[in-house]
């Protein structure tokens, strides 16, 4: 049986892709749901030191594809800004 190993940079890259695509959602609720979901999920992986199996790794890759597709689709539609959203996203103060 071939040994399967995932390096730390690979996981970092995967996490970054998740966060990147999640934050591209136009709709506030979806955007924040996915950001929350992957932040807690990866934190759990890190804290519980979960061993990444090939099955887990592949399921994440599939999930990433879904997220990529859905965030692209969300850009085709118009969503009204919610009152809690900043009009100017780049304004931090």
């Amino acid at each position: 049986m071939s040994s399967f190993s995932v390096t730390r940079p690979q996981i970092n890259t995967l996490y970054r892709s998740f966060i990147r695509y999640a934050s591209e959602f136009e709709d506030y609720n979806f955007r924040h749901y996915f950001l929350r979901k992957y932040k807690t999920e990866f934190r759990k992986l890190k804290e519980e030191n979960v061993k990444i199996t090939p099955e887990l790794w592949n399921s994440y890759q599939k999930e990433l594809d879904v997220l990529k597709r859905q965030s692209a689709i969300s850009k085709m539609y118009h969503f009204d800004r919610l009152v809690v959203e900043r009009l100017d996203e780049k304004h931090h103060k």
Partner: peptide, 15 residues
């Protein structure tokens, strides 16, 4: 930690 750091990088990417 590594997760916060990646969050920060993505935030900088957006900025």
């Amino acid at each position: 930690d590594s997760l916060d750091y990646n969050d920060a990088l993505v935030a900088l990417e957006e900025e």
